[in-house]
């Protein structure tokens, strides 16, 4: 148990010491909201600002970047550099490596969300959730979402053959999901087929769950399903966690192909 914490601490240290990563990962959602908040200054309706809508997408994007993108790129690179092979040669229990990654992802996710919410509140007058129930929803949607993303990131890490090809494999996937899941556009303004495709993947459901937190109750009927449908959000994200977990357990590779 202690070993897992130490591993997490070192992962966080490594993250904080690579300046570009810190800048891009932590500030990215905040920069996005700066751009969007400045472009869409109007209201989405009923006195609700656009910022209130887009912040949900930015939070979800941030969680996806921290969990999915960073791991799906970092793990193949570590595999290429032989870090994984070296760890495999030690008595370190295998779960410790993943515990370290999970702690790092959690650390980044919390920090970047706090930065994002702070910027959005101070500059664009974002209204934070005003009830305990909404904060609770915020918490479980984020936690379940980041879990699904993290597991998908680990599962996806087996796809890239080399560390160098990893960003090329991962970035388009992340970008397309962002476009079709209602991060950059109001989801219901997207073509129906696109909404259907997006509904397969976790990002759409993370956004929807977060809209239940940041938009008023009265906006529920504007959702594609006629309500925020939180049970379904939980269900889809939960299924993704399970599927990705099974993929992790069955496909994770510690060594490169040429290592046999």
């Amino acid at each position: 148990m202690r070993l897992g914490l130490w591993q997490g601490l070192l992962e966080i240290k490594q993250f904080l010491r690579s300046r570009e990563q810190v800048m891009f990962t932590l500030a990215f959602p905040a920069i996005l909201i700066l751009v969007f908040g400045s472009i869409f200054t109007g209201e989405i309706g009923n006195g609700v600002k656009f910022t209130q809508y887009f912040v949900t997408g930015m939070i979800a994007t941030g969680l996806m970047t921290a969990g999915f993108q960073s791991l799906a790129i970092q793990i193949p690179q570590e595999r290429d550099r032989g870090v994984l092979k070296r760890l495999l040669g030690t008595p370190m229990p295998r779960w410790v490596y993943f515990a370290g990654k999970v702690l790092m992802v959690a650390f980044i996710a919390v920090l970047e969300t706090v930065i994002l919410l702070t910027v959005a509140t101070l500059l664009f007058g974002l209204d934070l959730p005003d009830t305990g129930a909404k904060w609770l929803t915020f918490l479980w949607v984020s936690a379940l979402g980041i879990t699904a993303c993290t597991l998908c990131g680990v599962a996806f890490s087996s796809l890239a053959r080399t560390g160098r090809s990893a960003p090329a494999v991962v970035t388009p996937v992340a970008l397309i999901l962002q476009f079709i899941s209602g991060v950059f556009f109001v989801f219901t303004s997207l073509p129906g087929w696109m909404q259907n495709v997006a509904s397969i993947f976790p990002l759409k459901w993370m956004c929807q769950g977060l809209r239940a937190v940041f938009l008023p109750e009265s906006f529920g009927p504007r959702e594609p399903g006629g309500s925020y449908d939180l049970p379904k959000v939980a269900l889809v994200l939960g299924v993704w966690c399970l599927v990705a977990l099974v993929l992790c357990l069955t496909t994770f590779r510690w060594t490169t192909k040429r290592d046999g």
Binding site: W6, Q14, S18, E78, R81, G82, K85, T90
Partner: peptide, 23 residues
């Protein structure tokens, strides 16, 4: 091993101390 992975952003002391925890 031949040419094994580095832990780029950690110090020599941190890496050795961490590995010592495995044993």
């Amino acid at each position: 091993l031949q040419g094994t992975g580095e832990f780029d952003e950690l110090t020599v002391g941190e890496v050795v101390t961490h590995f010592a925890r495995f044993y």
